[in-house]
């Protein structure tokens, strides 16, 4: 089975985020970056499928040069080769623009499975994987916890709301977006990193892929959540105050 995993490099989870002067993106200079969490699960699922059924796992990632470190991490964890779509304008592209890049890079590979993480930790749009599937004309499913190969295709477990699960069968080739938590992740090893040095990383540019970058959706402004702290004193007897508190917890704070 030939599996392509689309991965994204995002700011490290506990990075101190500052808005850039233009107000449309965050300042990247002082940030550290890591592999997007659900992408790590997508990669893990791909590696486990390969270990069970053989084949090949390639990763594809779009972004500036710094993305190379995340690609190396994926290779260190066991991916066989990588495609790096070199572009500095990733954050000004919308989900369609990014998906066009990825789809153009994936198409000639003719994979059996395209896996992506459910959503990115920075923008959280949750669309890229689905659009890639549409652009490639592949059947697709989202919120996947687990993939099982059947004789005709794959059987996947989807996580629905409120503890419900759904089991779906798809023919191959297919595209799946993977939910975090379905597997135990493996850690990167020194041996993996050393072996990764000799693995192929093909560099492509947006121009080579012919993918249009004009966004349909334009980022207008981003903002940090404003901190709110307000104290209200509830008057009246303890009984009245308790009743008022209950009211507020139920209908204002909605925690009860």
């Amino acid at each position: 089975m030939k599996i392509i995993v689309a991965i994204k490099q995002v700011p490290e989870r506990d990075a101190p985020v500052r808005i850039d002067p233009a107000g449309t993106w965050i300042e990247e200079s002082s940030l550290q970056f890591a592999l997007n969490e659900s992408d790590a699960y997508a990669l893990e699922e791909a590696l486990q499928l390969k270990e069970k059924h053989g084949g090949e796992v390639a990763v594809v990632s779009a972004g500036p040069e710094r993305v190379g470190s995340t690609i190396r991490e994926a290779l260190a964890k066991g991916a066989d080769r990588a495609v790096h779509i070199l572009c500095d304008d990733l954050h000004s592209r919308d989900a369609l623009g990014v998906a066009r890049l990825l789809a153009a890079a994936i198409k000639p590979e003719q994979p059996d499975l395209v896996l992506s993480g459910l959503q990115s930790e920075d923008l959280g749009l949750g669309q890229t994987g689905v659009i890639v599937a549409e652009l490639l004309g592949l059947p697709h499913a989202t919120l996947i916890l687990n993939v099982e190969k059947t004789e005709t295709g794959v059987k996947v477990k989807r996580e629905l709301e409120e503890g419900w699960f759904q089991s779906v069968e798809l023919p191959l080739p297919a595209a799946l977006s993977i939910q975090s938590g379905g597997n135990k992740l493996r850690y990167a090893t020194l041996m993996g990193i050393k072996r990764a040095k000799t693995k192929e990383v093909r560099i492509l540019t947006a121009a080579e892929l012919g993918a249009d970058s004009a966004p349909v959706v334009r980022m207008e402004r981003i903002a940090l959540p404003t901190k709110q702290k307000s104290t209200q004193m509830l008057d009246g007897s303890p009984k009245e105050a308790a009743a008022a508190l209950l009211e507020k917890l139920k209908f204002e704070a909605r925690v009860l």
Partner: peptide, 20 residues
């Protein structure tokens, strides 16, 4: 370093430090 150690807690520690 060769990935031969498979331990739930150990992997959790390593992943926490890979990402944080």
């Amino acid at each position: 370093n060769t990935g031969a150690w498979d331990d739930e807690h150990g992997a959790k520690l390593f992943l926490a430090l890979e990402r944080g």
